[in-house]
Every structure is written in C-alpha cells, then in structure tokens.
Amino acid sequence: MRGMSLVVKVVTNIVVGFIFIYGVYIILHGHLTPGGGFAGGVIIAGALVLRILAFGVEPVSEKRAEERASAFESLGALLFIGIAFAGLIIGGAFFLNFLPQGTPLRLLSGGIIPLCNIAIGIKVGAGLFTIFLALAAIKYVMED
C-alpha cells in the first residue's frame, strides 16, 4: 500500500497520537461515562488504520503487523477470561466482582469492570486492526 501526500502525512503525524490517547481515555472511563472497551477499542484501531493509510506499508511488514495484532487480540481475550476465572477461583462464582467497589463516580471504582474494559479495549482495537490488515492483504493477492 502506497502512502498519501505530504499534507496528509504531516497532519496524521500530529493527530494520530491524540486519537490514540482519546481511545485510551474512553476505555479507562468506560464505567463512568458512555463508551467503554468496545468504543475505545474502535477509536484505537482507527488511529492505527489512519497511520497505515497515510504512510503506507510494505507487504512484509504488514504481515508482521497482522501477526502482532492477532497476538494482542488473543491476549485481550485471555485477560478477559482470566478475570472471569479469577472470580471463580477467588469467590466461587464465574465473573464474580471480587475487587473492592471503591467510591462511586471515581476512576478507581466498579471492581473488575475497568479491568474488563481494558481487556475488551485491547481485544477490539487489535481485532479491528487485524480485520483491516486481512482485508487489505486480499487486495495484494488480487493485484498479483
């Protein structure tokens, strides 16, 4: 995939970090405000996709990126199931909210909910990015 014009590259360089941070913010505040793991993950994936679209990528490094993204996706899912299993082992019920609940409306509240959001965020961000790369990879096959 070839990159785009210089204007796009410069603007992307400026905004891509902010988009990423915004995604992280949405994930971390998922238990307080609208949004959460899925929405934040989509925003993070958007930042990654934007970077690829603006700067272009060689097929070889795209393949490597896809492998890494799919490893992160598995990691997110494992984290999520791990939290559920921790509830089973610590408290005897699957998905038990075993952490202290904290003060409502504070960042540190909600027990396992923020952790679940982080796991979902990783999973969705990496997953959507993998889907994008996989669909882009089919294009290469067609061009051959």
């Binding site: 899925f38 959507l128 889907i131 669909l135 089919i138 294009k139 096959v141 067609m142």
Partner: peptide
C-alpha cells in the same frame, strides 16, 4: 444493541472477506 453490533461486525467482516476471495 451494542452486543448485536459486535456480532454484526464479525459477520460483515467475514462476509466481505469471503466476497473478496470469491471475486479473486
């Protein structure tokens, strides 16, 4: 709705991938 959207996302992505492969 949120859950249904996630599922739809998975199906749509898979469908498009298969459609592109068929085109190929």
């Amino acid at each position: 709705v949120l859950t249904a959207i996630v599922i739809a996302l998975g199906t749509t992505a898979l469908m498009l991938a298969v459609a592109l492969r068929i085109y190929n």
